[in-house]
Design a binder for these strands. Sequence first.
DNA 1: CACTCCCGCCAATTA
DNA 2: TAATTGGCGGGAGTG
Length: 892
Amino acid sequence: ENIYDRSRMAPKTPIKNEPIDLSKQKGCTPERNPITPVKIIDRPQTDPWTPTMNLKILVSAASPDMRDREKKKELFRPIENSEQSDTPDSLQYDIVDDSTVDEFEKQRPSRKQKSLGLLCQKFLARYPNYPLSTEKTTISLDEVASILGVERRRIYDIVNVLESLQLVSRVAKNQYCWHGRHNLSQTLKMLQEAGELQYGELMTSQHKEQDLEYKFGEQKKETIPDSQDKPLLDFSEPDCTSASANSRKDKSLRIMSQKFVMLFLVSKTKIVTLDVAAKILIEETQDTVDHSKFKTKVRRLYDIANVLTSLGLIKKVHVTEERGRKPAFKWIGPVEFPEKPDELRGHSPTSDPLPETQRGACAQYQSSVTGKQRFTRHSSFNSAQPCGATRRKVSSEPNSPHQERQDENCSKMINLAAVCRQKIEEDTGNKACDTKAILNSAKNSNISLPFSLLPVPGDSDFCVNPLPQAVFPVVQADVPSFSLPNGISSQASHPSTPAASKRENGKSTLVPNQPFLCFPSSSLFMLCGGLQENNVSEPLPAAGDLANRGAEAQAVAPPTACQKRSSHKCSSPSAPADDEEPAAKKQTLEHSDLPLSLVVPKKPPESPKVESSPGSGCSAAVHLETNRLDLASPAAPEMANKESTKPLDCQEQEKQSQNKDPDEPPPGNEHISKENANQPFQPQYLYVQPTAGLSSFNFLFSANQAPGAISLAANQLPSLSVPCVMVPSAALASFPLVCSPSFTSPLSSIPDGSFSAAASPNFSVSSLASPTPVLISTTAIVTPKVSPAPSVDPQQPAHPALHLSPVLTRSCSAVKLDSPVCMGHPVTLLKLQQPSSAPLTPKSIRPAHHEAFFKTPGSLGDPVAWKKSEGNQTRNASSVQRRLEISSTSPD
DNA sequence: CACTCCCGCCAATTA
DNA sequence: TAATTGGCGGGAGTG
């Protein structure tokens, strides 16, 4: 919400800022004062006053004062008026600000920008959710405080809460050890158990919180004693003798945090109102409901809630009662706690709030980490701290986290790949099953899938060879058509994806006749169908990812949606990928229903069926897009559309990010789509987004036997009947894709803009969509190791990009990702050439109709962001990645 | 005015 | 004694 507001506010802020600036200036420069009578007045007053008064005044002046701003406004007005009389004040102010004070304004932190929640996000962004077991990250409070630009006190607030959940442990003075979320499920489980002991009765008996409160009141007394002496859970101390702990007053914040979490875990509704929680927590102290005490408790709860919100464990909600609406928080974190994290991931994706990346990490975590950390607490601060000593990580800076992530991803990818392969093999037969579900989900979601091409980082491992030059001509027969599966009620526009990918080298797992083709490659371009979700309302755990979804869902109101996204994006930058990720997960979770979104070819009946094998736990939302592709490749024809299925085991929906992408504008070639729309498409391929674990893989399914063959330049694969092709992102990247201009969208055409948006940042989808055949060549490769600095954009609004302005995309026929892309995998750049190149203006691109998903005019506005990104290649790369991820939610 | 919750004083703890 | 922690509540920002 904050983010959203922020984005919205942005325009306003300048105005507000101005006044502030002015005030500051006043303080600084007396000269101006004379100008305004008001000021003069003030000063006179000050003079007479006592020194103390002066101090006060100075202080007030120093801090952004609201009052001052008003005065300032007045001051300025005259000036402005003189300059420009007509313009509305607001405008004038803006102008003034821009010229004069922007710096100040920008700097000036709005309250929200200083919020503990935001701070916590920044904090969390610095560390991997699932750090490798091997690496111990130590956190230096001073360092973090300085980096984040806050007083140390604030860091304590965050750390104390994190410590209560064992995300960190105190190693030494000023030193904390970052554990990440490996133990989170364990911790939560413990808390749940403890909570049940303490509050369980109450909770179970009561459905409503209010009831709870009463009961609590009664029982608390009983429970209190227990809790009081000991922290409910002494995570920190398990190892250490509790004695030390005892001596210290229990950190109220820590304990409160644990109790607070317990309440959620015990509550059936998973919703806890602040007042109830406060009462319950206060109990310790006593029945005396000291009002002041209550207030204080509530303040603390807000502090805790902000941190938990940043962790994606709870979200704010309101419960309306007779009395009115009360602030409350809803638990959105995992509800069930498998013994092992592994299980969590696999089985209960929904429960897992973690971002995709995290998940990926999990896999590796499992393997790599033996579990030692889990509950064992490294943490004992006093005694042993494995962590403490090693500080390297901390020093690492922003980049390090990246790499870690990358690593994680890699491992994840690997795992996924393995799984996928197995599944594929196994499942080849099973395909049909899930399809329906998918379709349904898709329907529900309303999502049209725009597909987007995204470069996806793949595993280095996987990609044996990037297929350097393999050409991957893809012809799109149709405009990207998005046909939604029948189900899609709304205009489903699905971008058809042209993607035909082929692996070129033999090395790839291509197996003729094989239902699936796997291409190992480091990075992939993914064509994604957007997904959407209906998303009714999902709270965004983290940042705006969710919002994005919402936006998507709201295709109807493009502008709003766009803005939201934009806003989100903005937020995202501030928060490194991690933050975003969580959001993505949520989405996935939410949407878990929709493991796959299929785009059905125009013909519903024929619509290929896709199956995902969720069983593995990957709820993967796979979006299948059927595209009519005319693929040069001979193989294409053979593909049977139906079988496209693919079992993905992915763990979770990690790939949501991908989904996100889809959210963004569906490929937008509207024209094309329109043109083609009517056309019957023959060969159709379904593109499945790898949502869950398969981020790196792209699946292409032939919806029909595709008449259009996919031509693989390098090797033309002899005709393969391949229902599905899994392409490692990298592999695809290397291939130039040729899209036939006519891309028909079965159901509806998708506006180019949207598509482009969906597409990878740099990559203009629209081009693909364009009627004219488009070639996409991958140009550049990114160095593997380079990681975009997550931190880079922390504040930049520019998101990677979901919003691509069509124009930009066009203009940038080729986007290069020079910057190293995450994952260490080479990044492929796609160049799109649009022969026809009718430049698409965003407007033109965007058909007003349906899916305006992403690209709203507002989104168009983003171009700026783009430009910025473009400006820096490095940045671009990072942005690109983000986009990829982001659409899902950026990994970074 | 109610809700949030930032800010930072200052006491308790540690080093 | 100095530094680190962190309880606590005033009061500002927001709606």
